[in-house]
Amino acid sequence: MKKITIKQMIFCGLFAALTAVGAFIKIPIPVLPFTLQFLFTMMAGLLLGGEMGACSVFIYMFLGLAGLPIFTEGGGIGYIIKPTFGYIIGFCIASYVTGKIANKVKNPTYKRILGANFIGLIIVYSLGMIYYYIICNFVINAPIGVWPLFLYCFILAIPGDILLCLISALIYKRLIPVINLFR
């Protein structure tokens, strides 16, 4: 691994803090309240680049597990046995992939950013569902079928996140000139 510069380190830390704040901004919609975590983790990948974005999400995950109440429902190591923890692992990997794809060119088009975001979305959901399935079937011994899993973890939750993908592309496009100033 290359040496991490001071600036990269600070950006990583700040984005972990931003993600934590994002978990507090809740948009109340019917069925499931959804938070901006996903948006911030995507932005971390887009703005900081793949490695650093994933690093910042990793820091966020670590802090949450260390007991800071920064996940959607609190924090603590016990969160590992929550079936929804897989989404947080998914955020980390999705952030890496999104950042890698979008930052391949200097000034990405909307099409590229959106593509990168949707690939990230797919990663988050597949990891989230796999984790959900594993925890339910093997850890807490409560078998769940594939179809209910799909309904509960995918169909009900995905519209909000598709929206977040679109919005993060919009925001990123606006922020490109700004981040170039600070780089």
Partner: peptide, 26 residues
């Protein structure tokens, strides 16, 4: 083997320090 242990700890400290600041900012 290339795990930047000090940097990871520093990033965590920065994040902890800035959560309240950024929440206030929001």
């Amino acid at each position: 083997i290339g795990v930047p242990s000090h940097e990871i700890a520093m990033m965590m400290t920065i994040a902890i320090r800035f959560i309240p600041t950024l929440a206030e900012e929001t």
